[in-house]
Design a protein around this nucleic acid. Sequence first.
DNA 1: AAGTGGTCTAGACCACTTT
DNA 2: AAGTGGTCTAGACCACTTC
Lengths: 258, 258
Amino acid sequence: MNPVTPNQTTSDAIGAAGAPSPTFSPLYQQIKGLITQSLQSGEWKPGEMIPSEVELANRFKVSQGTVRKAIDELAAENLVVRKQGKGTFVSTHHEARAHFRFLRLVPDEGVPHYPESRFIEVKRLRAPAEVARLLDLKSGDAVVYIKRVQSFGSVPTIVEELWLPGLIFKGLTAERLNEYKGPMYGLFESEFGTRMIRAEEKLRAVCAEEGDAELLKIAAGTPLLCAERVSFTYGDKPVELRRGLYLTERHHYQNDLS
Amino acid sequence: MNPVTPNQTTSDAIGAAGAPSPTFSPLYQQIKGLITQSLQSGEWKPGEMIPSEVELANRFKVSQGTVRKAIDELAAENLVVRKQGKGTFVSTHHEARAHFRFLRLVPDEGVPHYPESRFIEVKRLRAPAEVARLLDLKSGDAVVYIKRVQSFGSVPTIVEELWLPGLIFKGLTAERLNEYKGPMYGLFESEFGTRMIRAEEKLRAVCAEEGDAELLKIAAGTPLLCAERVSFTYGDKPVELRRGLYLTERHHYQNDLS
DNA sequence: AAGTGGTCTAGACCACTTT
DNA sequence: AAGTGGTCTAGACCACTTC
């Protein structure tokens, strides 16, 4: 009868004690899963308000406290944002807040701001073995390849290559990218229904090769910070491979250990 | 009468409603502050169990739920660790668990393990202006300077310099460092009563200079990942400045964006 | 005034560990 | 059996936002 199966019965049997659940997990985790499904399915879109805690508690036939704990975890994972007095909202990449979660390169002096993009190349190709492996595709599957240069106040600072699953990013063209202002993740979210949740980065120091040195207007051999990123959407599904080369003479990669 | 001043009264006046608190903040935040004070003062030492939630609730004259929320946050900040059925314990750097929170350099292949240290230099000197600024000292104050090389399976991979406030790390000598096995943070915690809570790192790519190249047995000019770290103890007090140069040919700096 | 999230309480029971 | 943290509920009130 209940949408969810509590793993324990209340002293006074208000909620009907369901059959013993085969897959044991706390009630609030099950609620969290159900809410996540609604987020993933697009029932509530990025930027929109989700139903209030009371409403969700009624829908799922659990107490408000249980819904609260589920939402607490979703908020900790940045899937939703709570705003006192207003409601709980689906996170979106269309906010200054979210921009710097995935851009860690900040100027040595002054306040961080977002760089301008110039796209060098946008094409479709068959995934090389390494790319396929990291994106969980089959070798030879279609992928979109993007190469761009990003500049801070007309100083070219980042050379970046991206590989995206062709199936998901069908209509992605240079025009779409050029029209769009702001972080690509905003475009991906709005136009392709794919929201980046988290990412893993591997950082190395490398020497600038000829071509990249030209794009950054520096000497070949200049040391660059190389960041290889795999980004994940709902269900820990990898949906982006990114390789960035950062010029770190006036900027640095900021990281907090905690 | 109460050790803490609730900011709201209960419907049935069980806890005596104290005078209105001048500095408004949620009750559980005040409890969290009191617990943090006890951690900082050493009332409960690293590795030890802190009083149970029920006991703390009695001590502070609040409900267990309020203590729970305070401890939840302390656990999220890694100041304590909860263990179901056993109790809540003060975090310590003497655990494999903690080691890799502050060492992010992992091998490209295989499982991470902890490097061996060889100390090149340990001496006391007067803080240069830059060091003093970052450690919140006065220029010329005494600091301990340490230089070491760290190796993974006999392959030198990290050259590291450290600056520590001389006042706190009075008796720190090369002998003490050589005797000690494991991460320095364990030594700092046990012998100097200073526990590193969190750190900020700035990463750059640089070229190996003569001296460092020799220590790492590489050619001068090899690109190295430079990590400048400021570590903080209780009260966000900076107590360590560290500059590491990482050879990233067989290793990389691992980072999760979330 | 009404609706939202945020705090606090009290009590029950569950899961895990130790005695 | 006793003690610990973990889950769940129900209800009250506070703080903030909007109408």
